Amino acid sequence: MPNTIISTDFKFPGQKNVYHGKVREVYTLENNLLLMVATDRLSAFDVVMPKGIPYKGQILNQIATKMMLDTEDLVPNWLIATPDPNVAIGEACEPFKVEMVIRGYMSGHAAREYKAGKRMLCGVAMPDGMKENDKFPKPIITPATKAEMGDHDEDISREDILKRGIVSEEDYLQLEDYTRKLFQRGSEIASERGLILVDTKYEFGKTNPETSGGKIVLIDEIHTPDSSRYFYAEGYETRQNNNEPQKQLSKEFVRQWLIQNDFQGLEGQKVPFMSDEYIETVSERYIELYENITGEKFVKADVSNIHERIEKNVLKYFK
């Protein structure tokens, strides 16, 4: 098994503090900069799995970088540089405490709620007579409150967000506008690759009002297999008509494996054992995801000493 990066403890020049998220480690630096390390940790049902997935961090970081460059004409983002395959450096922002989830199709969490008889999700109506993986008449935005590590994100309606003062109405309308524009562009990019962007989530922050005017920017990842669900376009209609499962490109395959092994992140449940062979198949699926989503061949970075490589590349960038 190749080496993986599970945790970090860097001491970068001008470092002020570090935050350990579910998958990313975020270093706050001087001069209003953030440095984000994408680890190989795998999170499912808001639980971090005990083993890392080889090259996963590199894959997520490189997809997110490419997608930010492909959408920066529509929505400003935080990104300044990517000095290492696992590292992104950008402008420090105050994150909004909501994730903007947008769904073009009735899949995943929406389908599970629908099967349970619910026809409202985050205050948005879902039409009667739909079956799993059907396309919504138009994409729906179903926000979630951002959880701290280990806690579950929670569905929330636009009305509750405004009523609780989590986001101002002016800012929230901008978030919705940006979310729809990004999803439209993401869907177009996916279509060019023979894929369907089924659903995804975006995270936004506000830049420093004094140095950068307090503008809303896209942060974190975008259109990656961890934040998005993709179907293969070829055969979609046939599979729907025959009531067959869709061929997916997302980490849903990991969730399904966990469900089959009696784990959904519920209290008292134990994460099932993941063999090296299974971990290897997950890594191969992530590489397949990368190549299909970007249309480019994946080039494996040197993982003989990932920590040393990252430190060297970051120090070289700052010099």
Rank of each mutant, 00 (worst) to 15 (best):
E25N: 14
E25D: 15
E25G: 08
E25Q: 13
V26C: 13
V26I: 15
V26R: 02
Y27V: 13
Y27D: 06
Y27E: 00
T28F: 12
L29W: 04
L29G: 01
E30Y: 10
E30D: 15
E30F: 05
E30H: 03
N31W: 03
N32E: 12
N32W: 10
L33K: 14
L33A: 06
L33Y: 07
L33T: 12
L34A: 11
L35A: 13
L35W: 03
M36C: 15
M36K: 10
V37L: 10
V37C: 03
V37G: 05
A38Y: 12
A38Q: 14
A38R: 10
T39A: 09
T39E: 03
T39S: 12
D40W: 09
D40R: 07
D40G: 03
D40I: 11
D40C: 04
R41K: 08
R41Y: 06
R41W: 00
L42H: 07
L42V: 05
L42D: 04
L42N: 11
L42M: 13
L42T: 05
S43Y: 03
S43N: 08
S43K: 06
S43A: 13
A44S: 14
A44I: 08
A44Y: 05
A44M: 08
A44N: 05
A44E: 08
A44Q: 10
F45A: 03
D46H: 10
V47M: 09
V47R: 07
V48K: 01
V48W: 05
V48R: 02
V48M: 01
M49S: 00
M49D: 00
P50E: 05
P50T: 08
K51E: 12
K51F: 13
K51T: 08
K51G: 00
K51S: 13
K51Y: 12
G52Y: 01
G52F: 01
G52V: 01
I53A: 03
P54E: 05
Y55K: 04
Y55C: 06
Y55L: 05
K56A: 00
G57S: 11
G57H: 08
G57I: 11
G57F: 10
Q58R: 00
Q58C: 15
I59E: 02
I59H: 04
I59N: 00
L60W: 09
L60P: 04
L60Q: 04
L60S: 01
L60Y: 01
L60A: 01
L60E: 01
N61S: 15
N61F: 06
N61R: 01
N61M: 10
Q62N: 09
Q62S: 13
I63G: 04
A64R: 10
A64Q: 05
A64M: 08
T65A: 15
T65R: 07
T65G: 09
T65K: 15
K66H: 14
K66Q: 14
K66N: 13
K66R: 14
K66E: 15
K66S: 14
K66G: 09
M67T: 03
M67R: 14
M68E: 06
M68K: 12
L69N: 15
L69F: 13
L69T: 10
D70Y: 02
D70W: 02
E72G: 00
E72F: 09
